[in-house]
Simulated assay, not measured.
Amino acid sequence: MKKKVGNGVHTSFWEDSWINDIPLSQSYPRLYALENRKHITVAEKISEATLIASFRRAPRGGVEEDQFIQLVELVDSVILSNSNDRWVWLLDPSGEYSVSSARTYIDDLLLPTVGSPTRWAKVVPIKINIFAWKVCLDKLPTRLNLSLRGIDIPSIVCPNCSLAGESCSHLFFSCSMARLLWRKVARWWDFDIPEFSSYEE
């Protein structure tokens, strides 16, 4: 959230994030130390003859002078209006809060990035898209996955070829029966399908 200044009456000049992403008290700590009225509003501060009117003394050279020049340049661009101050939501261009924007932010922050993006084909039934997504994430109830979830399985070996564990990758791309089916489907469609060894390929 960020304060959007209208008339400046309900926004703290030093302590609210209204002109920068952080409060001015953090951007200009030496000037904040000179301020007698720490809770002064934007409206009150800008209406004063100068920005140093409420300081206990004028800024002296060095860092104080540099910070004061920067602050003057920053505040010179501020034009107050007749509207009230309000909070705006930074995660949405409209400035209005939405669950969708919050969820997107949380997902981007917390969820791990996936190597290859999921591709949803609009011309394919949704159940096929979901099935492909489960294959991509290796979330089908294959023998290997069932065994990893603690379900007692007599054998995790692929029952079709008996050459490897029955995982999604093996079942659809490595198994000799899967490769044979790929070739038969390709011949049936009269279409050249290259051989794949993984979903990513």
Rank of each mutant, 00 (worst) to 15 (best):
R37Q: 10
W188P: 03
P194S: 09
K38D: 14
L163Y: 02
E15A: 13
I130K: 14
F191K: 08
I151S: 10
L51K: 11
V123T: 05
R60H: 01
P93V: 11
L137M: 10
I128T: 10
G150Q: 02
G115H: 08
C175Y: 04
P141N: 12
W120G: 15
D21P: 12
L148C: 13
R30G: 01
I52L: 10
V72Y: 10
E73G: 05
N36I: 07
P125Q: 01
S25Y: 05
S167A: 00
D92Q: 06
H39A: 11
W87K: 11
V63D: 13
V123C: 08
I128Y: 12
C161N: 01
V114T: 07
S155D: 03
V72E: 15
K2W: 01
N160C: 02
N84F: 00
S77F: 06
P23K: 02
V114I: 05
Q26K: 04
L90Y: 00
D138F: 10
L71I: 11
K134Y: 14
M177L: 11
V9Q: 09
R119C: 06
E48M: 13
A58C: 03
Y97F: 08
K45H: 13
D190M: 09
E15N: 15
T113N: 07
P154W: 05
W18D: 00
L24F: 03
S167F: 02
E65S: 14
C168T: 02
